[in-house]
Write a protein that binds this DNA or RNA. Structure first.
Lengths: 294, 294
DNA sequence: AAACCCTTATACATTTACGTATGGATAATG
DNA sequence: CATTATCCATACGTAAATGTATAAGGGTTT
C-alpha cells in the first residue's frame, strides 16, 4: 500500500548527513548524536522505504543506486529545513519591546548575566529590566512579566513551571576559617558566627529540622540584601548558606561539611497568562527555563 | 547562538499538518498520532525556534505572522518528503528477481497469503517461491532464501530474528463435540481422539509437561501434512492443537478449554548473510517481519 | 440559559529511542 | 606481519517521547 509514505523525517536528516560525510560515525559527530543511533536510524529508514540505501562493505559504506536517486530530494528537504531555521532566526531577532524580570538580588547579580547574554544574542532589540528584589512582586498587577521565585505561587491565574531543584551549602571564607577553626560537624556550627539574609528568626527555624541548632546570638551581622550579606561572608565576617552554583564559583570561599546533605530549595519560573500571546515574553521565558534547568 | 538551527524535523511535519488542517486534533488524526503528542510537538518547535507559531484563542488556533512566514518553507520541506516517498516507492516497484521462502505447510497455506498480497503490491515484478515443507531446509546450501521456523537456527552464519511468541490451543469441530462431548478439563482430553501432525510420539512428550497425558491410543489418525491433518479436524475426526491465528478463523471449529494456559511457541525468521546486500531479500524479509510481528 | 460538542492542556504509565560499552572486521601503519 | 586505528553492528540500562485518561475552556444548539 502507501506503506512507504510514513517514515521518520529525522531519519532523512540522518541519511543526508551520512551521505554527505561518507560514514555513520562522521554523521553522528555532525548531528551531535552517537554512531549506534545513526546506524539504527538508517536501518529503520531502509526498512520503512523498502529500499537499501547503503551497502555495508567492510568498514566503509557505499551508496546504492537507490540512495543516489533519493539523495537529490533529500538535499531539497535539508535546504528547506535550513531556510526554516534562518527565517525563524530572523523572526526572533526582530522581536522588540520590554520584558521585566524579577528575581532575588543574588540571582540577579550572579546567575542571570550568563542567561541575559544569550537573550541579547538571540533578540538584540529586546529591552530587559531586571527588578532585583527579595520581596515578592505581584505579577497580576504587572509589576513584572516574569518572576523567578523559590515558592510556588498561590494565584491560579499564573503560569508556573518548576525549573530546578537547587542545592545550597554552608560557606565561609578561608580567612574566617583560619581564625575561627574549621567546623567538623553540624554541632560545631553552633559555636560560629553567621551572616543573616533578611530575618534571622526565619533562618533559625529553617535550619532547625536540618539538625543545625542556632540562636540569635549566632547572628551578629546581616543585611536584607543578599549581595551585601554575601560580601560580608567573603570578607570573613562569618558563615552563610548559599546555592552551590554561586558559592562554588566564588574565589576565597569554601564549602563547609561537604559530606553533609545539601539544603534543597525549588526554583519556580512564573508569569502571567500573557505568555500565551506575547512573543517576547514567551521567548524570554523559554530561554530562562532552558538555562535554569541546566 | 545558532540555537534555532537544531530542531526536530518531525515537529515540522506536525506544524505543517496543523497549519493545513487548522487544529491539533485534526492534524493528529491525519498523522495517526494523538492530540497531546501534537500539542507537545508544536510547543517544542516554538520553543526551539524561539517563535510563536499559533495563538491559542479558545477552541481554534490562529497562526501568527511568524507562522505564515515559515509555512512556505515548511511546504517545500513536505513536498520534498513526498518526492522521497514517491521515488522510494518507484525503486521498490522496480525490484525484480526470485525469492524463495520456506515455511510449514500450515503457515504457507493459512498465514502467508495476506503477507504475499502486500509483497505483490509493493514489488509486482518479484517472483516468490513458497517451499511448503515441515522438515527444515538448509539455507546455507541455498535451498531457500528465507525460512520461517519455530526453533532458533544453530548455524552462526545465519541471521535470525525472533518475530513472534505465538500461542496455540486445542481445537475440535462442533460436529465432533456434539458426538463425543465437551472436555471440561485437561484430564478429560485423555478420553478423546486426537489427530497427529507428524510423529505422534513427539506430540505425546510435548504435551506431557503441560499436564495433558496422552498415549498412542489417542492417535488413531494423522498425517505428516499439517493441512491434511487440520482437514481431518474440520471433518470431525478428532482434536488437534493449532495456532489461535488459524484456529480462531476457521468456521465450524471451536477452541477447547479456553481458560487453560495457551501453548507457546516461538516464530523465527531466518536468512543467509546475503540479506545485507540483496535488495529483494531485504524487502521480503522486512515485510515478513512486519506482518508476523503483528 | 443550560446542555452539548469540540477543542487544547496536564498527569501518569508505558513504550520507544537513545547513549554507553563491547565485539568483530577491515584498512592503514610501523 | 603484527599493530594500531577506525568503522559498523549488537546488548543492555536509562532517559525521552508517546498514548490513555482527565480536566478545563469556548462556541453552538436546543
Amino acid at each position: 500500500m502507501d506503506n512507504a509514505r510514513k517514515f521518520d523525517w529525522n531519519h532523512i536528516r540522518a541519511f543526508l548527513a551520512t551521505a554527505e560525510t561518507g560514514s555513520l560515525s562522521a554523521a553522528a559527530r555532525r548531528l551531535d548524536q552517537t554512531q549506534p543511533t545513526l546506524s539504527r536510524q538508517i536501518a529503520a529508514l531502509e526498512s520503512d522505504l523498502g529500499v537499501m540505501l547503503f551497502e555495508r562493505v567492510g568498514r566503509s559504506l557505499q551508496m546504492t543506486g537507490a540512495g543516489v536517486e533519493l539523495l537529490e530530494h533529500t538535499r531539497a528537504m535539508g535546504s528547506a529545513a535550513d531556510r526554516i531555521a534562518l527565517a525563524a532566526s530572523g523572526q526572533v531577532q526582530s522581536i522588540e519591546g520590554q520584558v521585566r524580570i524579577t528575581a532575588s538580588d543574588i540571582m540577579s547579580a550572579y546567575v542571570l548575566p550568563d542567561i541575559l547574554r544569550d537573550i541579547r544574542a538571540q533578540a538584540p532589540r529586546l529591552q530587559i529590566d531586571v527588578i532585583a528584589a527579595n520581596d515578592i512582586r505581584d505579577l497580576l498587577r504587572r509589576e513584572a512579566d516574569i518572576a523567578i521565585r523559590h515558592v510556588r505561587p498561590d494565584q491560579p491565574d499564573l503560569i508556573a513551571k518548576l525549573v530546578q531543584d537547587a542545592t545550597a551549602h554552608f560557606y565561609a571564607s578561608t580567612a574566617y576559617l583560619q581564625s575561627n577553626g574549621y567546623p567538623k560537624s553540624k554541632g560545631d556550627l553552633s559555636r560560629h558566627a553567621f551572616i543573616s539574609f533578611g530575618d534571622p528568626d526565619r533562618m533559625i527555624e529553617h535550619f532547625e529540622p536540618l539538625g543545625v541548632h542556632l540562636t540569635r546570638d549566632n547572628f551578629r551581622l546581616g543585611s536584607q540584601s543578599g549581595i551585601v550579606a554575601w560580601e560580608y561572608v567573603k570578607q570573613g565576617f562569618g558563615i552563610a548558606p548559599m546555592s552551590h552554583e554561586v558559592g562554588d564559583s566564588t574565589p576565597g570561599v569554601v564549602r563547609l561539611l561537604p559530606e553533609t546533605d545539601a539544603i534543597r530549595f525549588p526554583v519556580w519560573l512564573t508569569t502571567h497568562r500573557e505568555l500565551h500571546t506575547s512573543r517576547r515574553i514567551r521567548l524570554v521565558f523559554d530561554l530562562l527555563a532552558k538555562h535554569l534547568s541546566k
